[in-house]
Design a protein around this nucleic acid. Structure first.
Lengths: 71, 71
DNA sequence: CGCCCATGTCAAAAATAATTAACATGGGTT
DNA sequence: AACCCATGTTAATTATTTTTGACATGGGCG
């Protein structure tokens, strides 16, 4: 299972606000829909590059999309 | 060589401002000094978790430490 | 009901990040 | 010169992320 992630994110919320599917979001930032699903469910910490791509797509700051939620 | 990273960072500058060595920074955030050196030289995109740890140590936002510099 | 579509999930493999253990270099100091 | 110390760098390995391909579920709609 891997240790719990200290990060949380609002990717799903922001994606749904825009009426996008996981597949569309993945396509837009260059990852697969499975990767988007894993990120939304916080199954692992994405690369900083993926995080920037998502934030830029949503026109938000990285820290508006991803946040520290524990040590 | 790997494709050029679209990210840049100010880790070295912020580390030096605080008079820390690469080894000390690595110890503080839980990675090795080689990893710190690689991040400073932008040899790869760190995990989002490492990026948050660095930013929090420096009491800065993630985007104040790391920035998008290309496509 | 039957058919899409979006999502969840899984296993195996590929790609990339990070570790470990070396050795090299240059600066400063004695 | 000899000695530290911080940094650079590399090869080999381990850990983690991401991909690929597959199959399952539930909702909406004909």
């Amino acid at each position: 299972m891997g240790r719990p992630s200290p990060l949380g994110n609002r990717v799903r919320e922001l994606r749904e606000e825009r009426g996008m599917t996981q597949a569309e979001l993945g396509e837009a930032i260059g990852v697969t829909r499975q990767t988007v699903a894993a990120i939304e469910q916080n199954r692992y910490s994405p690369s900083l590059e993926s995080a920037f791509r998502i934030a830029r797509l949503f026109e938000r700051g990285v820290e508006d999309v991803f946040y520290w939620s524990g040590s």
